[in-house]
Write a protein that binds this DNA or RNA. Structure first.
Lengths: 336, 336
DNA sequence: CTGTTAGCGCTTTCAC
DNA sequence: GTGAAAGCGCTAACAG
């Protein structure tokens, strides 16, 4: 269905050289006499020639394409991450092919097969848990791949991200230091995200600093955060702080709390995760954990491209999340 | 750098047939005796064979890849749009390659060249205004492409989207009907978006219904909306309604108004554009215009795939935006 | 510095 | 129903 545009031999004829020379010019490598190059370039312009990517890929066995499969692109920190990957790849003339898995192993596998069949040479996966079939498929085909949004030095697959468990523990610790001893964590579906599970584990590990630590699972959306408030109030009416494993949830919690007539942080403190860009604009500004999404995108992209270029093995890389202290957490005076 | 995985001839040898038969099986078309097919399929499994996409593309001249270039993926309605495109394409075994232009013609052109060099067979562009070079490039190469987020029956390029001007006019009309006669519009950078320009034109066209209509340009972000409030208050302190050309801006306006001690909608009414998912959760729920982003994504994807399959020409398609009436607009009693 | 030539792995007539 | 063979457009030795 596509048109027949100029081929390399047309350019060769037009400029009076062989196709090999045209190829050399197109790949701006080998030695070509400047004036010959010039002539070829002109013919190229004139014929509006662009090398056929399929033919090129067929001979070079390279497609310069890397795939990323993310759980969702909507409403989250993934957009930032993807934008960074895209940018880093563009610089080195690589392309990103994106697919969304909805946190479903089967969909993820299907997506991966499609991407593979498109010629993806490397894969960026989110989180640490993936179907065995997928992992084996990638391994058998010797496709380099990395897990992101997690850092786990013990993993045999390179993980590029942060320590979710430690981050959640530090959030609890932070809250405890501010005098909160009854906290409820609001989080998205555990089955959909090993990062959420890791965070929960981390929170529990710091639970001894508290008198009481509760968990409320909800949909990972503003609406989910909002409805979670009701549950929080029901199960732990005396909680003084709500820790949300995502800023999106925190936004919903703000709304829910507002509707319940509760003031942040006077009545209830709120802390988030992600540091989405509106978090510093809301009143009170949200205390949250900044996740280095951009940096992470750049890091995976660069590692993967490197690996594809010269075989450098992928290595795990820890990126630090940091607590951004703002005004949504109240200091509760010690009341011994 | 890539490994040598099983090729078609390996499968042929393994299953004792010719490569032509293997090809037939892989393309599940022509007649192949069931048991032969079976044998081939088994060999395929055993050797973990997947047809080489480059070789296939080289002979068929098809890549089953469509490119989309969007201004930004962060913080907006584009995420929804892209998700829908992705989904629609997946169903028909097409792949999406995405690039971000930051609303810059030069970047857009560069992105397009890269995507073309990757083998994109069709293009999804955002808005109506694009560099001539890009458009000519696409035309010369006879690549089908469509403009989205706009509907303009007079355009010679297919436009798939909504009538931004009419939508903005209807928003002003709606507000006027509720008794508002002094309105300020808060919008993103005009130079970056022909949609924004079209909306402004539409708003102005309905301006005769008002006593006063002002415009404040700001960054297209929550922060931008928030700071715009100060300007609104400065230039038109008596405005009773703020119309935001994006919900993201409206969120910022809510925050800014709150900080200024102004209540929505008692003191100032607010209306948005986009119907992002949190808009119904915020208090008061935001009256906004729903833009059919998903539907639009599905529509372009399907038209483009159709065109690529059988040459059906692309046609403009209008999708309707609708006012979602909620609680952020107060009714001002006629006070003649 | 430039040309010749041999494939890359697949699809697709055309025979049988 | 199946096989043989001719490319698809390009890159990469290898000569010269």
């Amino acid at each position: 269905m596509r048109k027949k545009i100029g081929r390399i031999r047309d350019v060769a004829r037009e400029s009076g050289v062989s196709i090999a020379t045209v190829s050399r010019v197109m790949n701006s490598n080998s030695n070509v006499k400047p004036e010959t190059r010039q002539r070829v370039l002109e013919a190229t312009k004139r014929l509006d020639y662009v090398p056929n990517p399929a033919a090129r890929a067929l001979t070079t066995k390279r497609t310069q394409t890397i795939a990323a499969i993310i759980p969702t692109i909507e409403n989250s920190v993934f957009a930032k991450f993807v934008a960074a990957i895209e940018q880093a790849m563009s610089k080195q003339n690589y392309s990103l092919v994106l697919s969304v898995s909805n946190a479903d192993d089967a969909l993820e596998l299907a997506a991966a097969e499609k991407l593979l069949a498109m010629g993806a040479e490397g894969f960026i996966l989110s989180g640490r848990d993936h179907g065995d079939i997928l992992i084996n498929l990638l391994r058998r085909r010797q496709i380099p791949f990395a897990f992101t949004s997690v850092f786990d030095p013990t993993s045999d697959v390179a993980t590029i991200g942060y320590d979710n468990s430690a981050l959640a523990a530090s959030a609890i610790r932070y809250l405890a230091e501010k005098g909160h001893s009854e906290i409820v964590v609001v989080h998205g579906p555990l089955v959909e995200s090993d990062r959420t599970v890791a965070r929960k584990v981390g929170a529990i590990s710091a639970g001894h600093l508290l008198n009481r630590l509760g968990f409320v699972e909800t949909n990972l959306s503003v609406a989910g955060g909002k409805t979670a408030v009701l549950e929080v109030l029901a199960i732990q009416p005396r909680a003084t702080a709500i820790l949300c494993f995502s800023d999106v949830l925190a936004l919903g919690v703000y709304f829910g709390l507002g509707d319940a007539g509760l003031h942040v942080p006077k009545d209830v403190s709120v802390m988030g995760f992600d540091n989405l860009d509106w978090s510093k604009e809301i009143t009170p500004a949200l205390t949250t954990i900044n996740l280095p999404a951009r940096q992470m995108g750049t890091a995976v992209a660069e590692q993967l491209m490197r690996t594809l270029e010269d075989g450098t093995p992928l290595v795990s890389q820890e990126l630090n999340g940091t607590i951004i202290e703002r005004n949504s957490v109240r200091i509760i005076p010690r009341q011994k």
